[in-house]
Design a protein around this nucleic acid. Sequence first.
DNA 1: CCCTTGCAGGAAACCGGTGTCAGATGATCG
DNA 2: CGATCATCTGACACCGGTTTCCTGCAAGGG
Lengths: 370, 370
Amino acid sequence: MPKKSSKVVRVPARARPEPRARRPEHVADSERKHTINDIARLANVSKKTVSRVINESPFVREETRARITEIIERTGFTPDPQARALAFRRSFLIGLIYDNPNAPYVINIQEGMLGALRRVGYELVVHPCDRHSEEFLPDIRRFVARQKLDGVVLLPPVSENPLLADMLRQLGCPYIRVLAAALDDPKNLIMSMDRESAAEVAEHLAKLGHERIAMIMGPRSFRSAIERLEGFADALAARGRSLPPEFVAEGSYTFESSVACADALLSRTPRPTAIFAANDETAAGVYRSAYGRGLKIPDDLTVIGFDDSPLASRLCPSLTTMRQPIRDMGRMAAEKLVAKVSGLESGAAIAATTVLPHLIVRESSGPPRQ
Amino acid sequence: MPKKSSKVVRVPARARPEPRARRPEHVADSERKHTINDIARLANVSKKTVSRVINESPFVREETRARITEIIERTGFTPDPQARALAFRRSFLIGLIYDNPNAPYVINIQEGMLGALRRVGYELVVHPCDRHSEEFLPDIRRFVARQKLDGVVLLPPVSENPLLADMLRQLGCPYIRVLAAALDDPKNLIMSMDRESAAEVAEHLAKLGHERIAMIMGPRSFRSAIERLEGFADALAARGRSLPPEFVAEGSYTFESSVACADALLSRTPRPTAIFAANDETAAGVYRSAYGRGLKIPDDLTVIGFDDSPLASRLCPSLTTMRQPIRDMGRMAAEKLVAKVSGLESGAAIAATTVLPHLIVRESSGPPRQ
DNA sequence: CCCTTGCAGGAAACCGGTGTCAGATGATCG
DNA sequence: CGATCATCTGACACCGGTTTCCTGCAAGGG
């Protein structure tokens, strides 16, 4: 085995042609991919005419178009995305930017987006990031600029960052923010109506007859946390209940933080008979705390979550929670983005797009024990 | 507002140049992106020399290199990925192909991969698919061929599909299969040692003193299911326990299937005192069944899972489970793939890469009640 | 019948990089 | 001091598409 000597061995330059960034053999020569030139030759037209057919230009005679279309289908030709990207000055790539620990959420958005993107020939490039890093904005800037992304979708909580939105606007990169509040022009939003959703939870609890109701909210720096809190508090007030400050704990949407919050709430006297947890992770934290104290759900304590993540139905007892149509939101975000990129944003097509979660009643909610 | 009349208004052709696939204005002109030509002009060299510097060719005088490097850094120039892709005939894109309902698993792989890919200038394109669709293979073929992917990572269960691997090989597309068994050349594998892992579970149960031990396995069509079953059965046998057929139920790695399996196992007399669930979802199903029957975990029943997904620590009691270093597996897969693509697969660098999960003991396992 | 005019389609440049190969340069050697 | 050679560098073609600009042609008008 030729051991690498510490002295650099210089090979005569002529011996090896040029350094060369390694080129893979990839495509077997036998099945060489067709190019637009091949098609043009086969059809006896110039490549430009083939290009016109591909891009649905009206300036091609029907007969010619048919002939070329037939050849394209027969040969299975598809234009090279990178070559198109170069000429079009855009990439046919959509980015998904997130810093969200909720895996099912991200996956569902992702798959919802792809459902819409595939039909129109876009690919999805994922970009998890760290919103607390110093490199947060520069990193995303590089990502967007280098790849010439046609657009990006932002998930909460980075979707709430106004600096990020400003930067994208300045970069001229179309974006869609998935959000819980109208923080932007409606044409840039997919909005989940968290305020109304929280109100639905309040109504459910009121109907069950609960009086001492507590909430574990998300971090106040998150817009969704504020919306859910306010919507909940307002709706309770409208039904003659109150949400006293000592019955509100601020968590961070995480399991661990929630256990601490729930411990605090459940050691109060009198104890709340119901806790609205601002997401399912948080609800799981309440379960843990209740479990530790030997409290039975829902007999001793009603728990309600938010998201309807897979976790909700795995917990015992199963969790009553607000279901967000996450996959649909992903699809809608993608469709809206494609519409923007294609310049179809005329008229009503770009109205604000909102989704309204709805309550899934399972085992964790019931009337308070007398 | 000009209402669109039903009669098509034809604008004279000269008026509008050509139909044109819409071109976005994207980059603000003020901050026009630099090209290699700009850099060449600034440095008073040809673009080829700049290209050499970018690609670290040794055929550039140190002084020249320094000058160009300085200019590149000062201007913040980064080469256009699509242009490079066109010239290099490769895309600097890596694909992630999966058909896996386990969201945390996919997300962790994804993020692990990106950790490695970013450093070397690759982007990740995700491609969920449906392995039962007729279009399964053609769809992936189009994806890989059109995008000229430099390589793909396959997650279970599609990683187990031999036809898919064959197709990729024929396409000349480097791939890494994340798998539970040595089904391929080691250089194409990231292997999780499921057999040994299952043995560790057996040992844990034996040490606790369990005798009547059951298992809910995954679908027999999955390699990991077989590995876990065999590893478990063999290890039990080695410790003087048996795994009788009536104590083995075949689930499908899903919560719902597991509830049915657990119901069947738990209605047997005598009842098993421990159940090894082949993944955490399955373990959650056992919890549900036990909950329905009023069985206490771990007093009446020990439950052990596999994965250490977030669910494991959310369940009450928390779940003893085998932790797979999923993120590391993603990172390793990406590194291995990049090494292949860069042609660095000489010598030991391409040895089989395996990971060994380890047991995380939590609350769900304990000695059987006398 | 000639001249417009509008449609269809082609030639060549271009997008922003890389590969090829010959030429320039400077050091070494006989 | 000229020949030889290794080392750098640039001109030019090319990757696979699109855009710009121009031409040929048939139909319609004067």
